[in-house]
Computed example of a mutant assay.
Amino acid sequence: MNSLNSTPNANRLHIGIYGKRNSGKSSLINALTNQDVALVSDVAGTTTDPVYKAMEVRGLGACVFIDTAGFDDEGELGELRIQKTRQTLPKADIAILIFTDGDFSMETEWLKELKQGGIPVVAVVSKADQTEPAPLLNKIREELHLFPIAVSAADRTGIPQLLQELTRVLPENYGAESITGRLVKEGDVVLLVMPQDREAPKGRLILPQVQTIRDLLDNRCISINATPDTMEAALAALKTPPDLIITDSQAFKTVYEKAPKESRLTSFSVLFAAHKGDLEAFVRGANAVEQLNNQSRVLIAEACTHAPLSEDIGRVKIPALLRKKYGADMDIQVVSGASFPEDLRSYDLIVHCGGCMFNRKYLLSRIARAEDAGVPITNYGVLLAKLNGILDHITL
């Protein structure tokens, strides 16, 4: 199975392409990927909403190119398109900023936003086959202290240099993070306890489980799979207790009571709290749950946009546990996918899912927004460990 089919978008390098309308953003994506994956037109404003293109690029690996609307769009609809473009910034690991002429006041403003977001920027002067790029290249160097690359999508001038520069500015150790590496060593026996209830897709495993199993294999561990009702049989089949037990968070309490004292215990959601987010921030947020009361407002944020089920952990189980412990009239709101309130200050707690459908940069941006608003934030697994009274007894 090739990387295009096997690598989830959340695990791909996200490269945002930003520039004015008809600046050659879509053509540049086609040149970088050597395929016609983006719609190209001479009509300004062809790209409206951001378009995400998953590709495999030599030297960069599995990528997602974000083709955006021009940030010089006009009118009421244009403002909405620019807003959509701006919403891609928290997801971008790297930004390509395209320049087309000597008036780059708009590019300067977007450069500030990109730098404020900590996004490495690669400057490009496009359509180098149509005009002499040297004067514009020099002006950008002198005024913005960038080192732009002259590129032509038509004849692929500058494309090798651009790919080399994208590789150079890759975030340090990008893609090297292991989900379980900080908890296991080669040869460890790991028991995975995975409920197969109505939330589990028929005939397959959910993404965090698949990724964790693959990660354990990469770390040369021995993994054994069980459900909560077969866990005891799995333990009995082992000569010694497993080094680590990883469970679904909703089974935390049951598994904790059955787990050997010699075995460390964690959950898929806790693993992803560290892998995708900020585990220390999530633990602080979970401890803040003790300050909740019947009048508190809680926001539950899901990365997925699936139809809710009767056993749904985010929409059903966590709200029920919170209301049982802190008040039946507690105001609990649920958002999913890209939906996330602009103003978070009215909430007393934010509970986020593991974020397996988001890239790490995007999830970290949500954590930063919550902390800027002074609102504690935690995630499903860490909160469930806290509510079950075992947060101090699990491996973080």
Score class of each variant (00 low, 15 high):
298 V>F: 07
284 R>L: 09
267 S>A: 06
336 S>K: 10
280 E>S: 14
316 V>Y: 00
260 P>M: 07
298 V>Y: 07
297 R>I: 03
341 P>M: 05
306 H>T: 14
325 K>H: 09
342 E>C: 03
293 N>T: 12
272 F>D: 01
280 E>P: 02
305 T>K: 13
264 R>C: 05
323 R>A: 13
308 P>S: 11
273 A>D: 12
248 D>P: 08
284 R>M: 08
284 R>F: 04
313 I>H: 00
292 L>P: 11
294 N>R: 11
298 V>C: 06
283 V>T: 12
324 K>I: 03
256 Y>V: 03
291 Q>N: 14
271 L>R: 07
266 T>K: 00
309 L>P: 01
311 E>M: 00
289 V>L: 05
269 S>M: 01
300 I>G: 05
274 A>P: 01
321 L>D: 01
311 E>F: 01
276 K>E: 06
329 D>A: 15
310 S>D: 11
264 R>V: 01
332 I>T: 10
274 A>F: 04
284 R>Y: 08
263 S>R: 01
328 A>I: 13
340 F>C: 08
271 L>S: 05
330 M>N: 08
254 T>C: 01
279 L>T: 12
295 Q>S: 15
278 D>M: 13
300 I>S: 06
269 S>P: 00
313 I>T: 04
331 D>N: 14
270 V>R: 00
327 G>V: 01
292 L>R: 08
331 D>T: 14
263 S>W: 02
323 R>C: 12
311 E>R: 00
261 K>S: 15
263 S>H: 04
293 N>R: 03
264 R>P: 02
260 P>F: 10
319 P>F: 05
288 A>Q: 03
293 N>V: 04
252 F>S: 09
276 K>V: 07
270 V>K: 00
258 K>Y: 03
248 D>N: 14
257 E>P: 00
292 L>G: 13
277 G>I: 09
